[in-house]
Design a protein around this nucleic acid. Structure first.
Lengths: 96, 96
DNA sequence: TTGATAGGCAAGTCGGTACTTGCCTATTGT
DNA sequence: ACAATAGGCAAGTACCGACTTGCCTATCAA
């Protein structure tokens, strides 16, 4: 539901994760962890990131595929496009 | 900032308020209050709505104009359009 | 088979925030 | 002038969510 999408986007760390995934799709939990630490200086535990990814997944913003002991995370942008059109007036002005 | 926009959108009541404003622009605090109560069954105090409107305004989603003892609230959709393009890949697929 | 890697589960802590309550200011009408 | 209407300020409560800690499971390499 839209509720889950908005709540998922409310957290800065989760938005960072989406930034990482849009830059390189299909990363594992550990890859995302190290990237967040090195590139953005976020000092978070692995569990924290794992929980964030769970929130993103249940919101439909991230899809996962298991492969052996790895779990790859892929970005899904469909929910994003839906939620915003909610408040855009019918006369959507196209950029000139 | 984008941070304020996302946090503003995180709350269901604030999204209801945006729904009301997109339906009829330029409402006062009291109008919004009564509408939320009658149409959506939300039993919230006037202060609660006032604080929500303050959040929406500081996020740039609502603009206000004072006129006598009335304060009218207008919706502003510009921040919405900006924040979502953040994760839409460069090859934006147009609807066929 | 054993150790190392990748990830999961569950309980607990702590801070932010949504909401209330009470009182105050300003504009309008009679 | 006075009451009623429209809104603002500030402190207090209570709950939700982000993060940690500790331990457990599964897959791969040697």
């Amino acid at each position: 539901m839209a509720e889950d999408v908005f709540k998922a986007l409310a957290d800065p760390t989760r938005r960072r994760i989406l930034d990482e995934l849009v830059e390189r799709d299909g990363q594992t939990l550990f890859e995302i962890c190290t990237r967040l630490v090195t590139k953005h200086g976020l000092g978070l535990s692995r569990q924290a990131i794992s929980q964030h990814l769970a929130v993103l997944e249940s919101a439909g913003l991230v899809r996962t595929r298991r492969q052996g002991r790895y779990k790859f995370h892929d970005l899904t942008t469909e929910p994003l496009e839906r939620i915003v059109t909610r408040w855009l007036k019918p006369d959507t002005p196209e950029a000139p």
